[in-house]
Design a protein around this nucleic acid. Structure first.
Length: 154
DNA sequence: GCCAACGTTGGC
DNA sequence: GCCAACGTTGGC
């Protein structure tokens, strides 16, 4: 099993939305590195830190699990969709999505500044300045440490 | 709203 | 293949 961090703007889709829906389609990823992680490495049952970006404060808000492995993101072909990619050839899926299921909402957001201040999380990608990747691998130790910070056993 | 950091594009 | 210009991300 692998561990991930996935970013969402809570104004667009928050951990509360995921709790309400039970699961969601994680579409709109338009970055090759993030896509490759989804395509090559994500497996059903992998666990995900659900991260609120562009939030006050930004930080980890919940836990989710991968519910379905990567499949074509057909929003790329929909001109009316926000994530439309006019350069994406019909019939050649370039972008992928996965399905993500709700696991838990953290009792409180583990804020980015708390992540950065924790030496046990040295090297965690999200704590690095300028790190914009919306789908990031997380080590098992870092994943467990974030849950511990949230007051959860894991 | 600002702007630094980053990924992508396109001229050469 | 270099790199300047551009658009986007995301913390602040």
């Amino acid at each position: 099993m692998r561990y991930w961090l996935m970013k969402s703007e809570p104004d667009v889709y928050s951990i509360d939305d995921l709790a309400r829906d039970g699961s969601t389609i994680w579409e709109g990823v338009r970055n090759y590195q993030a896509r490759n992680f989804m395509r090559d490495d994500m497996q059903v049952g992998d666990r995900v830190l659900f991260y609120h970006s562009n939030a006050a404060p930004p930080g980890v808000a919940g836990v989710a699990t991968i519910h379905r492995t990567a499949y074509p993101d057909d929003t790329a072909w929909d001109p009316k969709n926000h994530y439309f990619d006019e350069t994406c050839p019909p019939g050649e899926p370039r972008w992928l999505r996965v399905d993500v299921a709700f696991e838990a909402k953290l009792p409180a957001v583990v804020a980015l500044d708390a992540l950065k201040a924790n030496p046990a999380l040295d090297g965690m990608l999200v704590t690095k300045r300028g790190q914009r990747l919306s789908v990031q691998p997380v080590s098992e130790a870092h994943f467990a440490e974030v849950l511990r910070m949230a007051g959860l056993a894991g």
